[in-house]
Amino acid sequence: MTFYLQIVTAGLATGSVYALIALGIVLIYKCSGVVNFAQGGYAMLGAYVTYALTRLGLSPILALVASVAVMAVTGAATEFLLLRRMLKAPVVAVMMVTLGLLILFKAFCLAIWGPDQIAFPQLFPVGSVEMGGILVTYNYIAAAALSLLLSVGFLAFYRYTPMGLMQRCAADNGRAALAIGIHVSNQVSVAWAMSSALAGLGGSLLATLNSLSLGLSSIGLVAFPVIVLGGLNSLMGSLVAGLLLGVLEAVTDGVLTPALETYLRSHTAIYSVGALQQVVPYLLVGLMLMVRPQGIFGERGTERV
């Protein structure tokens, strides 16, 4: 029993970060119909900026806050400089632009900070507590708590504040929003700023867990199954699906793979099923696209872009 509890705890901790990254992608998609492949790139950049600022002598927490601000500006700038010029371009072209951004960001970080893994400054106190028979470090608790808090905060912001209302309005029907005096383009800029800030924060949190490297940008790919499962236009969906997928991965690694391998080893010549965990989310995505393309929480009709 403890074993399963341990697995779930581990899954929830990583899942909460997935949710944070996916949330940013959904935010942009809802508002402008753009799928941002570069989300992982923003996460990585945010982490490197935090690192660079601590090297300049800022305290880790202050550096984190400053880096989130820097990323918000970067996000808004991206929208203003690139996406605003591509309003009439096909979806595919916009998708490729974000892919180009991802390549650019990686090369940029490579040029400045080099290809090697870097020890990330301690944002949270060192130490751990025992939860369900597993030692959970303060890092993990802080990352998970912060991710969850922010995700819930965003849902509330979207639902209850005037700004959130304008965002929803712009997302729902751009023309109608324009007619009642909402500056839609600016709303899209705001969405990009918020999304990049989230990514920057998520990246920094991830770096406290996994140390800093260019590989951090691959978190963006992990987020794709999350948004498809949750529904491309559902913030709630990405939160739930993020946690779900985190747990699913942990269960695959800790329970499913060993069970499968024990069976195969005793009955066949197959010894290992390899890194099954990396393909399970995508199998689920394939299934979901066939059965319910709009995702668990998504609204119908979004699959026809």
């Binding site: 697995i7 581990a10 597993i134 691959s218 690694d253 890194a275």
Partner: peptide, 22 residues
Amino acid sequence: VDAIEFKYDAQDLTAQLLRVKS
């Protein structure tokens, strides 16, 4: 007693190590 394969750029292996521990 076991051989465990993981993704070569894995960033989290908690579940695998729980399996090792067991």
